[in-house]
Amino acid sequence: MNAILSHNRFGLTEPVYRSDTEAYGTKPSVRLRGFTRRFGDNAIIDGLDLDLAPGELVSLLGRSGSGKTTLLRTLAGLDGTSGQDVSIPAARAVVFQDARLLPWKRVWENVALGLKGKDIRKRAEQALREVGLGHRLDAWPLTLSGGEAQRTALARALVRDPQLLLMDEPFAALDALTRLRVHELVLKLWRIHKPTVMLVTHDVDEAIALSDRILVLDKGRIVAEERIDTPRGERLALTVALREKLLGCLGTGHISEDDDLTVVFDDKPNIPFSPSDPF
């Protein structure tokens, strides 16, 4: 086993649960053991162990190509797990970076997408009011600002009352001020609804400000873990040192003369819709 892994046990043997979520029991909300995902010979995720406690807010940091998105897709149930040791809650919801609202459905219809049962419109309205969009129910998504679109996406996730809320760089496209406000909103909603949250982000400061625990993913393995016990709002003092440490784990150094820029940036192409993909 990897030396770093054996030092950081990620609470695998002695999971530390948040005291206010003990009511949920001691069973982890998400549990992965030796999870591996390959594309051809290339292991994107390699023998990953992961536990998320109920109601825990965990940030996942990682460079492009570190396997963040693949892990998120697995937790979202978008990719099959082909009989591996993976347990994820049934009630899941994803907030994507680019909101991903259907432009041809009104805001409330987007929130209501796929809901079953009675009073769908009423439930959607309530969720939208909770994110402060009670006045935009019948708006078309393309008329929303970036912050409004992202709050709609948040409402769409919350209305499902998820046990596991997955967020894939949800604040990346927002301007700095809006981002801070949405941070506050997410924390507020998280305290009310208490879902387990996995926040995928590039932003180390954001991870420090929001999380109970930070994981750093590299080449499909967790290479660092930080638990933050300092209450949110009192974290400014610890930011500098922790930030340096985490950025070190992410390998965010200077680009030297002989670096291959295609490797440094590791951009991925957009893949158009194909009917042979599962949908």
Partner: peptide, 20 residues
């Protein structure tokens, strides 16, 4: 038009439990 649909929208719809 069908092939030009953003595959990310389809992913999002799947993540909210919509069937084919």
């Amino acid at each position: 038009g069908i092939r030009g649909i953003d595959v990310r929208l389809i992913d999002a719809a799947r993540s909210f439990g919509l069937n084919r």
